[in-house]
Amino acid sequence: MSEPHRPSGGGPSAPAPSHSPLRRVVFGLGAAFVFLTLLGLGTWQVQRRSWKLDLIARTEARVHAPAIPAPSPADWNLVGPDDAYRHVTLSGRFLNERETLVQAVTDYGAGFWVLTPLRREDGSLILVNRGFVPGDRKDPASRPAGQIADAVQVTGLLRLTEPGGAFLRSNDPAGNRWYSRDVAAIAAARGLTETAPYFVDADATPNPGGLPIGGLTVVAFPNSHLVYALTWYGLALMLGGFFAYRRFVRREGRSNGE
């Protein structure tokens, strides 16, 4: 019996299956969701930028305003973020024997902030960041002129407490190792009562002997929101352009009978 005749391999191939309408709809909805999400992220960054610019303006106004008395005990519970960097003044006597050294890095290099309690006439205490000392001058005996015993007046910036420690480094009160200016923890470690919930960064008024060095407060707020907004909007534009191009190519193909 003869073999059945098979057509030679030169005939037309079967047409490729087209994408189903459901698949196109799902793909389009997914792309639309991503596009709207990118637009939303860009708009959110624009709003964040407006908020940050307002924060910077309000902070600068507090920094450069005339100094006012530091909040008294009756007002301590009212101190909040809107008081950060407020220009304040206070007077009293330093409790030099209870100073605390907090690790710091400044334009002068690595060293320590010197936080010293100041007792006011009403008996209340406020931690004052008197300024920076290098590592080789951390011992108060190496800077005796700066250990002021007389009554003083301090002008500076009100700062909010910094609880816990620094990035990846927790404060160790038992070991007397401090990485942030945690007012409550420092007060507890030094046996201080009636202590304000904030501290004050002293200004650049020179201390006797030149140490500590005050006036090193850095008032800066990262503001990259415009860059982020342009990035999100740019991605949305690229995505929209990609689908517009695909639609144009598809229409051109149909008009050419492809």
Rank of each mutant, 00 (worst) to 15 (best):
I68Q: 14
P69R: 00
P69S: 02
P69D: 02
A70M: 10
P71D: 11
S72Y: 00
P73F: 02
P73Y: 02
P73Q: 12
P73R: 06
A74H: 10
D75S: 06
N77R: 05
N77I: 12
P81Q: 13
D83S: 08
D83P: 12
Y85P: 02
Y85Q: 10
H87F: 01
H87W: 05
H87R: 14
V88L: 03
T89R: 09
G92V: 07
R93G: 11
F94G: 04
L95I: 10
E97H: 11
E97S: 00
T100K: 04
T100D: 05
V102P: 02
V102Q: 13
V102T: 06
Q103E: 14
Q103F: 00
V105C: 10
V105S: 15
T106K: 06
G109M: 11
G111P: 05
G111W: 01
V114S: 02
L115V: 03
L115S: 02
T116H: 06
T116Q: 03
P117L: 14
L118T: 02
L118M: 11
L118A: 05
R119W: 15
R119N: 12
R120V: 09
R120W: 12
R120S: 11
E121A: 07
E121L: 10
E121Y: 06
S124H: 12
L125A: 07
I126C: 07
L127K: 04
L127G: 05
V128R: 07
V128Y: 01
R130K: 15
V133N: 04
P134V: 02
R137W: 04
R137V: 04
D139P: 01
A141M: 04
A141L: 05
A141C: 07
R143V: 01
R143G: 01
P144M: 15
P144G: 12
A145S: 07
A145T: 01
G146K: 06
Q147R: 15
I148F: 05
A149G: 00
A149Y: 07
A149C: 05
Q153D: 11
V154G: 06
T155E: 15
G156T: 08
L157Y: 05
L158Q: 13
L158H: 10
L158Y: 14
R159T: 01
T161N: 14
T161Y: 12
T161G: 11
E162C: 12
G164Q: 07
G165F: 06
R169E: 09
S170D: 08
N171T: 03
N171R: 13
D172I: 00
P173M: 00
N176L: 06
N176P: 04
W178G: 00
W178N: 03
Y179R: 06
S180G: 09
R181G: 02
D182R: 00
V183G: 05
A185Y: 04
A188T: 11
A189I: 03
A189C: 11
R190Q: 15
L192S: 08
L192Y: 12
T193R: 15
E194S: 13
E194Q: 15
T195K: 09
Y198T: 09
Y198Q: 13
F199Y: 15
F199L: 08
D201R: 15
D201T: 14
A202M: 10
D203A: 08
D203V: 11
D203G: 06
D203L: 07
D203Y: 01
A204D: 08
T205D: 04
P206I: 09
N207Q: 13
N207K: 10
P208H: 13
G209A: 13
G210L: 10
L211W: 03
L211T: 10
L211E: 01
P212E: 02
I213L: 15
I213Y: 00
G214E: 04
G214Q: 06
